[in-house]
Measured scan of single mutants.
Amino acid sequence: VTVHVDGVEYDFDNPEEALKFAKKVAEDKNGTYEVHGNQIRVT
């Protein structure tokens, strides 16, 4: 699973970890996250 944040890609073997990371980053920057299959984009 790849999490995209501001043009940087973070790869996770564990989808739950990826989702947790995306949620935290989105909260920290008052943004949102979208899941597209095995890609998660934080905006």
Rank of each mutant, 00 (worst) to 15 (best):
V1G: 03
V1K: 04
V1F: 15
V1N: 05
T2N: 04
T2F: 06
T2Y: 07
T2G: 03
V3T: 01
V3H: 00
V3K: 01
V3L: 03
V3F: 02
H4R: 08
H4P: 01
H4T: 12
V5Q: 02
D6G: 08
G7H: 05
G7P: 02
G7L: 04
V8I: 13
V8N: 08
V8C: 13
E9S: 14
E9V: 15
E9R: 14
E9F: 11
E9G: 10
Y10W: 08
Y10E: 02
Y10I: 06
Y10N: 03
D11L: 15
D11A: 15
D11N: 15
D11S: 15
D11G: 13
D11I: 15
F12M: 02
F12G: 01
F12L: 02
F12H: 02
D13E: 11
D13C: 14
D13W: 09
D13T: 11
D13I: 10
N14P: 01
N14D: 14
N14A: 06
N14T: 13
P15T: 11
P15D: 08
P15E: 13
P15R: 13
E16A: 10
E16Y: 10
E16V: 10
E16W: 11
E16H: 09
E16F: 09
E16I: 10
E16M: 09
E17V: 06
E17R: 05
E17N: 06
E17I: 06
A18T: 00
A18S: 02
A18D: 00
L19S: 03
L19P: 00
K20E: 13
K20W: 10
K20F: 10
K20V: 10
K20R: 13
F21E: 00
F21H: 02
F21S: 00
F21C: 04
A22N: 01
A22Y: 02
K23W: 05
K23G: 04
K23C: 09
K23V: 09
K24V: 06
K24P: 00
K24A: 11
V25I: 13
V25N: 05
V25Y: 08
V25L: 12
V25G: 03
A26E: 02
A26H: 02
A26D: 01
A26L: 06
E27T: 11
E27Y: 13
E27R: 13
E27L: 13
E27P: 02
E27K: 14
E27M: 13
D28S: 13
D28E: 14
D28H: 10
K29S: 12
K29Q: 11
N30V: 05
N30F: 08
N30M: 09
N30R: 10
N30S: 08
N30K: 11
G31H: 05
T32E: 07
T32V: 10
Y33A: 03
Y33K: 01
Y33Q: 02
Y33G: 01
E34F: 12
E34S: 11
E34A: 09
V35N: 04
V35R: 08
V35L: 08
V35Y: 08
H36W: 11
H36A: 10
H36I: 14
H36G: 04
H36Q: 12
H36P: 01
G37A: 06
G37S: 05
G37M: 06
G37Q: 06
N38R: 08
N38K: 06
Q39V: 15
Q39D: 10
Q39P: 02
Q39A: 09
Q39I: 15
I40Y: 04
I40H: 01
I40S: 01
R41P: 02
R41A: 07
R41Q: 11
R41S: 10
V42C: 04
V42P: 02
T43H: 14
T43A: 08
